[in-house]
Design a protein around this nucleic acid. Structure first.
Length: 323
DNA sequence: GGTATTTGACCTAA
DNA sequence: TTAGGTCAAATACC
């Protein structure tokens, strides 16, 4: 794999910055990165283990690590919010712009309508609601595949951001209404000089994805085994409307996922896809080596590109990958 | 016809 | 006043 080292260094750069500042914000970044790594590690390790007590133990340990990091992040954010200064650096400014006090979960939807309803019966204005998102609820990462995170998202807005070349897209969970799921995310293409115009193997176009809130819907990949992302090779081959002619075994997993996005009739493939996921899958396919070049090392590299999703429970069908 | 996306307007915090 | 986030009508797609 020609660009293996490039990807490796890219990942390394992302997770191991050269200088580590001794302030809370730097610590927050480090913990968040660690959280991302653990999440990705979980996606790799758990499917590889047999379904026995070792698997359960590993799952508990990983969840424990994530829980610790969540608490640490929460504590640091508390410290930050109480010591926020107007003289923050550029990163801080960017974060602060994202920070909006979100309305409490119980009255979220009503608030939007409230704000548009000018007054109540007595002519009194409703209490002013704070719309800014809370920094503490967000997790950001950079990925070439911003939509391939296992959840269904619905785009509800796009905005040109000041001094940014690319617009920012706003997504919320598809099940926001029916399951009151508050998870949202924003996706914005990065402006790196070397990848500004086109995707190629060495410099994939990178996107900054920021997740806000946790999924409370049970239709994500969290729930039951039925919801796990499992694509059996046999399923792919027997689902004629999902099958890509001439697809290799090594890529059948992802191609099936891509085609699941093309057709909602792919009932045997439980990949949650919006239309943009197809594009992501195609990118991943471009990155995927031939079947005889697949190694665990390669898989790990690809997993490193998977977006962080704290709720996700991906299950990789290794049979489909290594046949 | 139902669902998803686009896009201009509106709202709020800074 | 400005920039970012959201709404909702219009439009596109299947």
């Amino acid at each position: 794999m020609k660009n293996s080292s490039n990807k490796r260094s890219l990942v390394a750069d992302q997770y191991h910055p050269l200088s580590v500042c001794c302030d809370h914000r730097a610590a927050l970044r480090e913990i968040t990165m660690g959280q991302s790594l653990v999440t990705q590690l979980r996606a790799i390790v758990l499917p590889a283990l047999q379904s026995d007590e070792r698997c359960d133990l590993a799952a508990q340990m990983l969840e424990g690590i994530l829980d610790c990091s969540r608490k640490a992040i929460s504590e640091l954010q508390l410290q930050l919010s109480s010591s926020a200064s107007p003289h923050d650096d550029d990163d801080h400014v960017d974060d602060k712009r994202r920070v909006r006090k979100i309305i409490s979960s119980s009255d979220d939807d009503d608030d939007h309508h409230c704000s548009r309803k000018a007054a109540d019966d007595n002519g009194n204005k409703p209490l002013r609601q704070h719309k800014r998102r809370r920094f503490g609820d967000s997790v950001s990462l950079e990925t070439p595949v911003p939509h391939y995170d296992g959840h269904q998202w619905r785009k509800y807005g796009q905005k040109h951001i000041n001094n940014a070349k690319h617009p920012r897209s706003y997504y919320r969970c598809t099940y926001r209404q029916e399951e009151k799921c508050k998870a949202t995310k924003t996706v914005q293409q990065r402006e790196d000089l070397h990848n500004a115009n086109s995707y190629n193997g060495d410099h994939p176009i990178m996107y900054t994805v920021v997740y806000y809130g946790q999924h409370t819907c049970c239709k994500g990949p969290v729930a039951s085994a039925d919801d796990h992302v499992v694509v059996e090779a046999s399923q792919v081959s027997t689902e004629s409307h999902c099958q890509s002619p001439g697809s290799s075994s090594s890529s059948s997993y992802l191609q099936a996922a891509a085609h699941a996005g093309d057709s909602s009739q792919c009932s045997n493939i439980s990949v949650n896809c919006s239309s943009s996921v197809v594009e992501d899958c195609n990118k991943l396919l471009d990155m995927l080596p031939a079947a005889d070049e697949l190694t665990t090392d390669v898989l790990f590299e690809m997993a490193a590109y998977a977006p962080l999703d704290l709720d996700i429970n991906w299950e990789i069908d290794t049979n489909a990958l290594w046949i």
